[in-house]
Structure formats: structure tokens, C-alpha cells
Design a protein around this nucleic acid. Structure first.
Lengths: 228, 228
DNA sequence: AGAGTTTTCGACTGAGAGGCTAAAACCTGT
DNA sequence: ACAGGTTTTAGCCTCTCAGTCGAAAACTCT
């Protein structure tokens, strides 16, 4: 085992998208040892002069069109000296989100996998992926992070299915609409969508009001006293 | 400017404690260039064979008794290549909490500073410190993280003052008690504390039920449907 | 004993999430 | 065109829980 005095540095990303009604992660099959052939998270070494954000975007660009990654945030840093069998390597994991609908061209070695049925992943990538899912689920409660999973325009039913897939449990369309409207997270476009075959009332079309992450402030408990 | 092909790696910690009714951070005065004499966060280089957690604990041990740091968690990773004027350096910031009451021996160059009136800090340490405070404030809402700021036993009034200092606004003792009891975060010891001079009803003594971080689960909105 | 202090308890209020039902609006097949 | 089926939408109700207020409790000091 090579044990240099300086760790190598890699960036990784858990890239999630709702595909076919399921939360899926972008994985690629390793082309070299160790873990040759095993599925793993996209990423790679840090280069001189770049930030970690730039690094992970550069590595992701080799797999997907990075313009389609609508949100990217730091997830956690892994530093166990034995996490890589041959090299002292520190990994900075990011969480990336791709909106439903876009279907990026992928290289041969890359594909989507449902997070609920992951294959065996290389290194500690399995835990990292689950940590990414948990981060997403938590933030769905108190931020507008779903903007990065949803298409530009959508009906409440589509959004309900999206939330249900990400959260892993049913969501009520009625309640979802009320909560998100009350918080000012989504707004109506004024348009309606024609019903599919089989009929049904035409659904109103909505959009997210913001294209970046915002935290619902009124969310905290133990608030400051009302200033009367 | 030295621009090696591999970044150096340091760990830093924002160590917070409520002292004299104010949220304060542990800082030390740099003894070498750059930023000679400027206040900065404790930390230092990563050594071969250790994790980042071990590294920051080792560096903290040079400043305080690390057994007194009741909670330590990853905060963020700073990777701007220009954040250090001479070296390519990646910094992993941690958030550490010390309970009220303990008063560790400190070296000559080290002291506590109120976060609301920080001096000019070296590098990007000012922003990191404020990020630590925001993390603490957020987590006070939906976790039991206050266990790491509070002494083993306390009255509700003492806990109210502690929350008020950390949050930066008044907190109602009545409400605080109800919320924390209902969530099962604190429990009564059955004892009461003798009133000080001036009188007053003796206060009931409480303790936190858990000594590690726990998340209030019922906190999420868009919960799973009730299973009837 | 009375005045002053601090803690504690109970009741009230209001906001907001979750649930249910009925109505609205559309399609398809006869 | 009408009946029956489907999906969306709106209204109403309930329940939980945070926040507020006031009064009672329990103690000290003079």
C-alpha cells in the first residue's frame, strides 16, 4: 500500500433524477482496478488551480451535459485512510439534481440506477448515495429544492408523483398544492393542460417561482417573539 | 506563490460556547506569516494515517481539553485556490460545541471572542465562523443539539438564557419547556434548586435525555399518510 | 405579615398541515 | 346527446402544536 505524506483529492457526485417514477442515481462502471467493473459515483481527481466545485463539474461533464444539473451542493467529506485500498484519498461528495424530462446522452459505461435497488458499489459509494437521498428528502421539507427535480412547468399531479418518488411515500396533491402555494414556492402560469385519453378535468399548470435554493424561513421553531 | 500539483490539507474548527451569556468562539492569534498576529480558527495540517475527525481533535487538543468538546460535526469544505496567499490549501471546517460551565485552560495565544463582535479574522475564517453559528441556530430548531451547550443539569430559566444567547433573540421559558418536554428531549431529574438571594420559587432541575445528536423526526412536513 | 421575586401551571389563540367529500370539467362509448 | 368513468379542484373540518398571557405557587427578605 502506497502511503504518501499527502493525500490525493477526489470529488464525487451523487446525481439524482426522477426517472420512470423512481429516484435514480447516475453511476458508471469502473474501467480500472481497484473495483474494476463495479458501479461507482462519477468524479475524479482534483487539478491544480480549480475549486472543488469546478472539479466536480469538470468530471461530471464527461458523463452528462452539466447544464442539465440544476442544483449542486456539498454533501460530505470522506477521509478514512483505508477507504481506498491502495491510495490515501480524501473524497468530497456533492449532491447534484437533474430535472425530470431531460434525458442526457450517456457514455457506454454510464447509466441510471434506482436508489432503492442499488447494485454493490465500489468503495464507500453506497453509503454516500444513501446520504444524498437523505439530504434530498430532508430538504424537500423546508426548502424549494424540488425546483431542481421538476420540469419548468408541471401540474400538481405530476409534482405529487415527483415528491412521492423522492420521499418514498404517498403524497396528497391537495395538501402539496396548499403548502407550496402558501409558502410562495410555486405559482400558477394561468394555463391548463389538456386531459389525456380517458378524460378528466384539465389540470392547471404551475412553475417554481425561484430557480435557486431558498429556505422557508417561517419554518424554525422557537421563533423570535412577536414584536407588538 | 508555490503552486504544487497536490493541495495541502488542513482541518479547522469553529468551537462555540456560551460564556457570560454570549455565544463565543475559540480563537488563537497566529504566530507566523501569513496573517501574523491575526486571530484565526484552531486547526492545522492533516497527517498521514489519520481521518479528518482525528486530525481536528488532535489540533484542538493543543488548545483545549478535547473531552470538553461535547459535539463535533462537519461544517463545510473550503477549496478556493486563492484562499491562502502562498499555498494551495483545502480546509475542512468542523463545528464544535463546549457545554456552559466548563472553563478549559487555554494557552497564551488563545482566547474566547463573542461571535457577534468578532475581530478581523485571518483567511476566510470570519465567514466560516458565521456559517458555524448559522448551523447551530438551525439545528436548535429540529435537533437536541443544545445538549452539547448545556451543563449536565439545569433549570428551565438557565436553558432559556442559553437558547436566547445562541439564537440571538428572546425565548419564552414556558414555551421552551413545553416543546422540549413534548418532544422527549429533556426530562425532569425530580430535584429542585434552592432560590438565590431575593427569593423566588425553587426551580425544577432537568437534564437532556440523550448525549448525542438526535433529529426530531415528526418535524418534516409532507409526512407519510396516516396508516389507518 | 407583607412586599418582592422567580418559577410553574393552565387556558386561550392562531397558524398550518392533513384528510375527506363533493363539485367541476373533461373524455368515451353507445 | 347522454350516461358513466376519470381526473382535478375547491371547500370544509379536524388536530396538532407553537406562541402568549395571566394567575397561582413557592420562596426570601424586611
Amino acid at each position: 500500500m502506497r502511503q504518501s505524506t499527502n493525500p490525493a483529492h477526489v470529488s464525487l457526485a451523487v446525481v439524482l433524477q426522477i426517472r420512470s417514477g423512481a429516484l435514480q442515481a447516475l453511476l458508471w462502471q469502473r474501467g480500472r482496478e481497484p473495483f474494476l467493473g463495479a458501479w461507482s459515483l462519477p468524479g475524479g481527481y482534483l487539478e491544480a488551480g480549480e475549486t472543488l466545485e469546478q472539479s466536480i463539474q469538470r468530471h461530471l461533464a464527461a458523463k452528462v451535459d452539466v447544464r442539465e444539473v440544476a442544483h449542486l451542493e456539498q454533501l460530505e467529506t470522506l477521509s478514512d485512510p483505508n477507504r481506498h485500498p491502495r491510495e490515501w484519498q480524501i473524497a468530497n461528495a456533492y449532491l447534484g439534481l437533474v430535472p425530470t424530462g431531460v434525458d442526457p446522452e450517456l457514455p457506454e459505461d454510464t447509466d441510471w440506477h434506482p436508489v432503492s435497488r442499488l447494485p454493490e458499489l465500489a468503495f464507500d459509494h453506497g453509503e454516500i448515495t444513501l446520504a444524498g437521498r437523505e439530504r434530498l428528502r430532508a430538504k424537500l421539507s423546508y426548502t424549494n429544492i424540488a425546483f431542481a427535480l421538476a420540469p419548468p412547468e408541471f401540474t400538481i399531479s405530476e409534482l405529487r408523483d415527483l415528491y412521492a418518488a423522492a420521499l418514498g411515500h404517498d403524497v396528497s396533491a391537495t395538501n402539496l398544492q396548499r403548502v407550496l402555494l402558501r409558502r410562495g414556492v410555486i405559482e400558477s402560469t394561468g394555463e391548463r393542460r389538456a386531459p389525456g385519453r380517458g378524460g378528466g378535468r384539465p389540470a392547471a399548470v404551475f412553475r417554481f417561482r425561484s430557480g435557486w435554493l431558498e429556505v422557508t424561513d417561517e419554518f424554525a421553531v422557537l421563533r423570535p417573539p412577536s414584536t407588538k
